[in-house]
């Protein structure tokens, strides 16, 4: 048994020496950062640990993710404690020194921008809140541009030889993004003053961008599932008649929202949490287009 084991170890070491690849290996915690990496480093091998149908707070540190992280050069995550339940375990088990600290191949998007809802005094009785602020920054178009610039710096730090290429990708992306952003701002202006009930603070930055007011949350406290007494209080709030829609993300359970919708005659809109969250959302651009279109539709119906 022990002899076999040594043989195995030896052969594994041999394959290791053949494994040097020039192509950069990128591990994204969420699909929006896989999509951003694809814009900025189209030649890289990119893997997304989660899909838009999965809750990024609750991910299993499963074997396939450890194996991917073992081989990766760069890990891109939202940060601000979003992945605190699984990322440290992956780092520990993957034994990849390259992606252990942000000095090297670890990149947190939320560290590059100012997050909303930072709290100086966080207590567990408040639910699953983070002192570092809301981590779902990917729905803020201006913040994503800042993140893209910082990510390009990181790519250049790790792969200096291709520095010119990364710069070129960034300027191309920035131009397209700024153009799209003017269109999103026009759509957002039409949504100003819209009031919604939403599930969790998943779309905090989108609502901030479009001046939409989330008047209530389906969750009684962040991270806790809707309860019947809480839903009853939401129904009372909905009776005021100023709410346009109930909004949930693609991974969220629809039962609470459907119950409330039935009682209050409000529409339920399922917004894609990320790229891949609905058929239209194929990249970051179409993700924003689709999300804003869905909201516009609902707001027009209310009017």
């Amino acid at each position: 048994m022990r002899i076999n084991f040594k043989l195995l170890l030896g052969s594994a070491l041999l394959t290791l020496s053949h494994g040097a690849l020039a192509q950069m290996n990128i591990f994204a915690c969420e699909p929006e950062y896989a999509a951003l990496a694809k814009e900025l480093a189209p030649d890289a091998r990119i893997y997304s640990a989660t899909t838009a149908m999965q809750d990024p707070h609750q991910v299993q540190a499963r074997p396939s993710l450890i194996a991917k992280m073992r081989q990766t050069d760069l890990v891109i995550c939202a940060g601000a404690e979003l992945e605190v339940g699984w990322l440290p375990m992956l780092q520990m088990k993957a034994a990849n020194v390259q992606v252990r600290s942000t000095d090297k191949g670890l990149f947190f998007a939320a560290e590059q921008v100012k997050t909303l809802d930072q709290m100086s005094n966080v207590d567990r009785s408040m639910g699953d809140v983070h002192s570092l602020g809301n981590p779902h920054v990917h729905f803020s178009p201006p913040r994503m541009l800042t993140i893209a610039q910082a990510l390009t710096d990181k790519l250049i730090q790790l792969d200096e030889e291709q520095s010119a290429k990364y710069q070129q990708q960034l300027s191309r992306f920035s131009a397209r993004w700024q153009l799209a952003m003017t269109q999103w701002q026009v759509k957002a202006r039409g949504l100003q003053g819209m009031k919604v009930i939403a599930y969790h603070s998943s779309f905090r930055y989108l609502f901030d961008f479009a001046n939409i007011e989330q008047v209530a949350d389906l969750e009684p406290k962040p991270g806790l599932p809707p309860t019947s007494s809480h839903l009853a209080s939401l129904l009372k709030r909905a009776d005021n008649g100023d709410i346009a829609a109930i909004i949930i993300a693609s991974y969220q359970d629809q039962r609470g929202a459907n119950w409330l919708a039935e009682k209050s005659n409000l529409p339920v809109i399922v917004l894609p949490l990320s790229v891949g969250g609905n058929e239209q959302s194929k990249d970051l651009f179409s993700l924003y287009d689709s999300t804003l279109d869905l909201l516009t539709q609902a707001y027009r119906t209310q009017k």
């Binding site: 022990r2 084991f5 170890l9 594994a12 290791l16 396939s64 194996a67 073992r70 088990k93 993957a94």
Partner: peptide
Amino acid sequence: FSYIAPTDLYWTMGV
């Protein structure tokens, strides 16, 4: 002592 192989199939071993 443990080692994790650089393969897509997760494979770790140790003594």
